[in-house]
């Protein structure tokens, strides 16, 4: 038996990106209360607010596409007269968030809509990458900075190979995994200060691939300077995909620009 659910899309940029997934959960619990959203609680010995989040964003990464589903009190929905077209709740929820976090959209979910963890199949990332063997505090000069062409070659080599092996630490054991099937798309976009900017679509199912893993599988190996999640995707059938909650590009750009 579940009550009405709202899906919220939010952005996370700037200083606040150093909060962890658990921190963000706590921030939302408080922000929803501050904004006066009457969240449903689980029954039982230790009631918890019914809020669920999608795939954890690694601490330090920013995002234009974070999501949460929250079950709300049906009476509150009635009182509030929640309305998809009404942006007031979006504004109220943004106002109650810390600087750097912004609510982009809110929508009521249709009953039976699967959870984010189940539904989301891939994410689009913007990844700022540099050569892996150069320390961040090195001031050694140009020779250590990798160029767009070099990375583009490395990427095309990787995409044309049958397998891309990475080392994974799982429950204390080191294992080798082939991430090639999970790398849907990689494109070198531009040169940045210490390296290059990539755009990549990485699968989250059956097993999620991390941006670090993609970069480590290239030759020469790269490391992540910074990454931003641009989209999360739900595959609807063989070739179609949609976002859990689409927003106009404009408001996403505004969120990023605010910091």
């Amino acid at each position: 038996m579940s009550g009405p659910r709202l899906r919220v899309r939010f952005a996370k940029h700037g200083k606040v990106r150093f909060t962890s997934h658990r921190d963000v959960a706590r921030i939302w619990e408080r922000s929803l209360r501050r904004a006066g959203v009457s969240v449903a609680y689980s029954a039982g010995f230790s009631p918890r607010p019914k809020i669920s989040f999608g795939f954890a964003l690694p601490t330090g990464f920013s995002s234009d596409a974070e999501y949460l589903d929250v079950e709300v009190d049906p009476d509150w929905v009635l009182r509030q007269g929640f309305n998809q077209a009404d942006t007031r709740l979006v504004e109220e929820l943004s106002a109650s968030l810390p600087a750097g976090m912004q609510t982009l959209a809110v929508a009521e979910l249709s009953p039976g809509e699967p959870s984010l963890q189940h539904a989301v199949t891939s994410c689009t990332w913007s990844i700022d990458a540099a050569l892996a063997d150069v320390g961040t505090d090195a001031v050694s000069g140009l020779s250590d900075v990798i160029g767009v062409d070099e990375v583009a070659e490395a990427v095309s080599r990787a995409l044309s190979s049958d397998e891309l092996l990475v080392q994974r630490q799982r429950k204390g054991r080191l294992s080798t995994a082939d991430i090639r099937p999970a790398v849907h798309f990689v494109e070198v976009q531009e040169s940045i200060k210490d390296g290059v900017r990539l755009r990549a679509d990485l699968a989250t199912q059956p097993q999620a691939v991390r941006a670090e893993e993609l970069l480590a599988s290239l030759h020469p190996p790269l490391r992540v300077l910074h990454a931003c999640r641009l989209h999360q995707w739900i595959t609807t059938d063989a070739s179609q995909r949609r976002e859990p909650l689409a927003v106009p590009e404009l408001s996403v750009a505004a969120a990023g620009a605010a910091l």
Partner: peptide
């Protein structure tokens, strides 16, 4: 000093200790 501190934060435990930005 944020510009100098920021690149160090991905390399430390619990970086949210250092960002301020609290409510209030």
């Amino acid at each position: 000093m944020w510009q100098q501190l920021e690149p160090l934060l991905p390399r430390v435990s619990k970086p949210a200790r250092y960002i301020g930005s609290e409510g209030g």
